[in-house]
Amino acid sequence: MLINKLLLAQAIESKVNFQIDKIVTTATASTEYVASFYSKDEIYIICRTKDSLYVTSYLPTAGDKVYDVNTVLIGKDTLFLNTIDSLYHNAKEAYEYRLYSKNAVTSRNFLLTFNKDNSIGVFYKDLATSKDLDKISRIINRLDLYMIRPLSGPSRGIKALKIENWDELLGYLMAFNYKRR
């Protein structure tokens, strides 16, 4: 039973790596950056375009099925926007980034990627200063706050999406970017 559990966890992790890589490498030119956070089988994808930032969260499986897909359009949350924007600008301007490769996804639960001179730059925690790490903590805690489900009554901003498989989800993420062009 333990071996089965471990194999399943490995299969999910491998799927997560594949999916994050796909999202990062297919992001359109209108996307300023994509940040991803992965924790205990939940993935958050943060897409920043010139005039908006939206977060999509979902639970991956070892196959193509995805669960609990939600989206939040971050509007006036300047605290969140400023924190993540400054992380991006610092990384890009201070050259605290590497050229993206598939390996960047492996074993890293937080990534921020962006277009840089026709290639993709990637920032991750190994490159972060203590101030950056504080910002990452604030971003992650804030993401969790958006996902709080009250005992009754409305959630505070999340919208559940009726998406149940990976291809559909990728299509949704890409279509959103095109719309924002």
Binding site: N109, D144, P150, S152, G153
Partner: peptide
């Protein structure tokens, strides 16, 4: 905010999920 109860994640230093925090109201009128 919560209709009488809320629950959220607690992350560790490495940003791993290390637990959950629950708060609820007894004798709630909600």
């Amino acid at each position: 905010v919560g209709g009488g109860g809320l629950n959220w994640s607690v992350f560790g230093q490495n940003h791993d999920l290390i637990g959950r925090f629950s708060i609820f109201v007894i004798n709630s009128g909600q």
